[in-house]
């Protein structure tokens, strides 16, 4: 359905925006390394079915490979700044102070409590869904702490938020047309979209109404 396709495209766009801007400006100002590392972990734990015989479609396969490869590539790209631009890298590390072990532990507990089957793959899948729902927090924390939003991070988070938002409509669509619902994905998806809702309001004020303001 259209919601899902545009959701996926918006997710692709967010990664494209991030990669393009980092590569072309050679700047990592305002980007949270922790959030990017968490996303790499999210895809590594979710797409393990690539190595099983679970085949969905060519589209699904190619997207999984792309998300997996691009998330790892972003982490590597950011790590290169450690030697390429130590000052910028150090500044990022100093601002990137969110305690992610709470997110990891919370997602692990949620994965152990809520899963479809008690198998390693299913628990890791569930862990990845819960982790994705909170993985943006270090980035949002960094934005609110620095009080200024780089256009890169603003557009990046907007595209990511749009992807989650469209997925909610995708689930409503699937519930109506296919009578299919994945409770774990839906609950975690709503949590994730709620995380972005405050950001959406800021984006609306800043970008759409053109107020060059600061983040509260």
């Amino acid at each position: 359905n259209l919601f899902r396709i545009f959701g996926d495209l918006s997710h692709l766009a967010s990664i494209g925006i991030l990669l393009h801007t980092v590569r072309s400006t050679q700047s990592i100002d305002g980007i949270s390394f922790k959030t990017q590392a968490l996303y790499a972990l999210v895809f590594m734990t979710r797409y393990l079915d690539l190595f099983t015989w679970h085949w969905v479609s060519l589209y699904n396969f190619l997207m999984k490979v792309f998300f997996l490869a691009s998330s790892v590539y972003i982490v590597v790209l950011l790590q290169q700044f450690r030697t390429k631009n130590p000052i910028a890298y150090k500044e990022m590390v100093l601002q990137d102070t969110f305690k992610i072990h709470f997110l990891l532990l919370g997602s692990l507990v949620a994965g152990l409590c809520f899963h479809h089957r008690f198998t390693l793959l299913e628990i890791l899948w569930s862990f990845s869904v819960w982790l994705e729902s909170v993985a943006i927090l270090p980035q949002l924390f960094m934005l609110s702490k620095s009080g200024r939003a780089q256009s890169l991070t603003v557009h990046y988070i907007f595209a990511l938020g749009l992807y989650r938002f469209l997925y909610i409509f995708n689930w409503i669509w699937r519930y109506v047309s296919e009578a299919r619902v994945d409770k774990i994905a839906v609950v975690a998806g709503i949590v994730q979209t709620a995380m972005y809702s405050d950001f959406f309001y800021i984006y609306y004020k800043k970008v759409i109404r053109g107020n060059a303001g600061n983040l509260p």
């Binding site: 899902r4 996926d8 997710h11 079915d49 679970h54 969905v56 479609s57 699904n60 997207m63 999984k64 998300f67 479809h116 089957r117 299913e122 899948w125 997925y167 995708n170 296919e178 009578a179 299919r180 619902v181 994945d182 409770k183 994905a185």
Partner: peptide, 10 residues
Amino acid sequence: FVYGPGHDEL
């Protein structure tokens, strides 16, 4: 009504 892992989404 189908509930459970299809895992056909990204």
